[in-house]
Amino acid sequence: MPSLSHAQARQPSDAALSRFDPLPRIICLDDFDRGFCGWTQLVGNYEDSLDAMLPGYAQHSSPMLSTLSHWDIGSHGGVDGDYALKIATGPRPGAQNVTIKRLTYRRAGPIRLEAYVTFKPEANALKLSETDVRSFGFLFDLQVGDTTPGERVMPHLRFLNASSGEHVQKWQFKRQSVPIVPIGTENKTISHYHLSPDGWEDLPGGAQRLCYNEIPTKVNWHYICFDFDLSSMQCTGFRCNDRVFDMSGFDSLRLPAMKNLWCMLNLAFFAETDSGKRAFVYIDSVCLSGDF
């Protein structure tokens, strides 16, 4: 089992890795100064017609490479370069957007997701606007191999920044399944909008006040590290900046294994707005590593 003691992690000498604490095998190190690095839009499932796509997915659009350009200061830039991956919601309360990277895994063992991320609302008002972004978060979409009894497992974590204008600031997880909707007529495709506002539960001890800064165009980056064991399909750790959280109360959304998703290893980040402003989530870099 991996632990959040980073003493076992590789101590890399090069600058690109030195701000991460990866497990021994780097599966991917995505610095968005190099481009999109395989991160794309999460599109909803459909058959015959795009009208079959669930509304939650229909609102998604492509991620972009941003210099965090603002009207009052110009480009903010990333942690160590010019560009970050950006997802933007529409300007409607509750609007969401998701970016995803799709892999499969070689060995069902420990994996670690690390990233430097931040969030801000569209700076279209001369206000602090700290309660305009509802949440940002990340998830894995995983399934056992085709010879292994098991499930499709989707660990979700989000930072609920605000709700109906209240500055909430706490981590939440989701284990409650959402309705599965058949798509089309050939019995080959289903859909389920697992990022719906329902079913989020507070992570015990998960309140955290993140640095937001003093106007909407001043941006600070946050470090997240999420550990998961693909053999037990259990979360084994989570930290954000200086806080290490007790994940004993965490569980994942679980579904029956699906016939086309064996060894799936998808990872995604999402944004949600609480106001009529676009919410922006920026990802400077992502490191996915494994113990194999």
Binding site: F36, D51, A58, S61, S62, P63, M64
Partner: peptide, 9 residues
């Protein structure tokens, strides 16, 4: 090079 879908259906 990159292709982005910004408005769909």
């Amino acid at each position: 090079s990159n292709s982005a879908v910004v408005t769909r259906n």
